[in-house]
Design a binder for these strands. Structure first.
Length: 486
RNA sequence: GGUCUCGUGGCCGAGUGGCUAGGCAGAGCUCUGCAAAAGCUUGUACAGCGGUUCGAAUCCGCUCGAGACCUCCA
């Protein structure tokens, strides 16, 4: 490979050459979901983006430890003392941990449907309360957090005297400190910009634990600081998440790590962009979320049909992870057809016959594909190149272009790596699980061929139509008839 | 209000100083018993107005429009 991987680091807003701290090992932490309801398709996009990144790093030969958390501590909702998980538990009259379990399983199933590889470690916030309490103590030892009425807050003002709080999200500390909007009743904080490390629980709060300060629960930002460094070390390579987490979540994480560990833990901050729906961010809290299940069944007012998981995955990969992606039926249908064409071509590629010479430059194609992915995981460009390969395959099939067996093998290998290993697509149509179906189809096609030879087109068309109804599309090519299963 | 991002042909979406992105849809042609598929050709897009430049979709300014974050959020 000629070009080197470059990634866009949110920290300095530049493309940087990717150099792991301890090659060949790579540590990657991604903020996972809060499991109080089904994830929506926008959440799926984020995790699919990081799945692409994970898969590509693996493909490059890195030993990646991929940590993605499950937030199972409910964090506060509005001004009430109730949190999302408890609220759901109350509404459904079940235990909070029952809510957590249900939606954790659902999340796993969903991501499996979209063919995302599971992370290496998937730690939960509730499983790391001792570590979180210890971490708070470390920050307090540095004098950068204070207890107030049973809660513990991070002292942003003091921290910012020596550190640049707000650097990641491009915020001005003075403005943050000056901003006092809508903070009634927050008298426990010395300053509105301070954030909770530990919150004392109200009596009716269900999820609460003992700590040196009160019966309460940890602040939202803390779990990521704790679990990332526990499993990846005080310093690690990649921290990822959705752009909406830049502030305050990731900003707070940076501050906590610096305060508690005296380290800037993260080398590369990667942020994925939002999936929009009619130009608006998809968000659970605004009711604009479409769930994966609705996508897969088409059961939603704005969907004109169902889409399968691979179509959606392909659709997502056709946009760069740092761009917003707008969602529409037309675009999804285009992706559906494009993917189908790509997969058929790959199938054909594996059955092409070699020539004595090559009329196409496979080595160059290889460079173009890697070049695209090395440029901050630019999957849309790589896909554009793959469609060039699709054209090649069809031309070779027609005898208009040629490849030697060596080039052919190389091309097959590259294409299969990119489409299946790196992009994580699956060819769900050619299940290939049952050779008997294929034998049967060959038999039927022979009968039809005989009919055609006798110019009995009534019969041959009848066979084709019936097979089409059943779900087999018949194509009469130059070197015989083929079929695809729809 | 503050900070920031974006505005590309019918739709989605790359690109970012001069050279075809790509997919889908459309049109024409070839192939074909028909169909499907495939191939070839084609549309001449960069919100608007100024400026910089030999040259700008790409840089600068302004205007209009959209969105994100500032509160839980992937």
């Amino acid at each position: 490979m000629q070009s080197k991987l470059r990634v866009y680091n949110t920290l300095n807003r530049e493309l940087e050459e990717f150099q792991p701290l301890h090659p060949p090992f790579v540590g990657m932490y991604v903020c996972g979901p809060t499991v109080y309801s089904e994830v929506h398709i926008g959440n799926v996009r984020t995790f699919t983006s990081f799945d692409l990144i994970y898969r590509y790093l693996l493909h490059l030969g890195y030993k990646v430890r991929y940590v993605r958390n499950i937030t199972d501590v409910g964090h506060l909702l509005d001004d009430t003392s109730e949190d999302k998980i408890s609220k759901k538990a109350r509404l459904e009259n079940i235990e909070p941990m029952e809510v957590v379990q249900r939606y954790t399983v659902d999340f796993h199933n969903t991501m499996a449907t979209f063919n995302a590889l599971p992370p290496s470690i998937e730690p939960t916030a509730t499983g790391h309360l001792i570590e979180q309490i210890e971490f708070i103590q470390k920050i307090m030892d540095q004098g950068l957090a204070y207890e107030s009425n049973g809660s513990v807050y991070f002292d942003v003002k003091k921290y910012s005297e020596s550190e640049n709080y707000g650097a990641l999200s491009g915020r001005n500390v003075d403005e943050l400190l000056a901003n006092t909007r809508s903070l009634d009743g927050q008298t426990d904080k010395r300053h509105p910009a301070d954030f909770a490390l530990w919150k004392k629980a109200e009596p009716q709060h269900i999820m609460k634990w003992n700590s040196p300060w009160s019966l309460g629960f940890p602040g939202w930002h803390l779990e990521c600081s704790v679990m990332s460094t526990k499993y990846l070390g005080k310093q690690f390579d990649i921290h990822g998440g959705g752009m909406d987490l830049k502030f305050p979540h990731h900003e707070c994480e940076i501050a906590q790590n610096k305060a508690g560990l005296q380290e800037d833990s993260v080398k590369y901050w990667l942020h994925t962009n939002m999936l929009t729906f009619n130009g608006r961010k998809m968000a659970k809290s605004e009711g604009t979320g479409v769930t994966p299940k609705q996508m897969l069944t088409g059961d939603h007012d704005l969907l004109t049909q169902a889409y399968d998981a691979m179509t959606i995955r392909f659709f997502m990969l056709q946009a760069h992870y740092r761009s917003t992606l707008d969602f529409s039926n037309e675009a999804l249908q285009a992706a559906e057809k494009g993917l189908k064409r790509l997969l058929i071509a790959i199938d054909d590629l594996n059955n092409l016959s070699a020539s004595d010479s090559s009329s196409l430059n496979v080595a160059e194609m290889r460079e173009k594909l890697y070049g695209a992915m090395n440029d901050d995981f630019n999957s849309p460009i790589a896909i554009a190149h793959l469609f060039e390969v699709v054209k090649w395959v069809n031309l070779i099939k027609e005898g208009k272009e040629s490849l030697t067996s060596e080039d052919l093998d190389t091309l097959k290998s590259i294409v299969n790596h990119f489409v299946f290993d790196i992009f994580g697509l699956k060819d769900e149509q050619s299940g290939g699980d049952d050779n008997k179906v294929d034998d049967l189809m060959q038999f039927i096609l022979e009968i039809r061929q005989d009919a055609k030879a006798e110019k009995n087109y009534n019969l041959s068309d009848q066979i084709r139509d019936r097979l089409n109804d059943i779900g087999f599309t018949i194509k009469d090519g130059k070197e015989g008839t083929t079929y695809t299963v729809s």
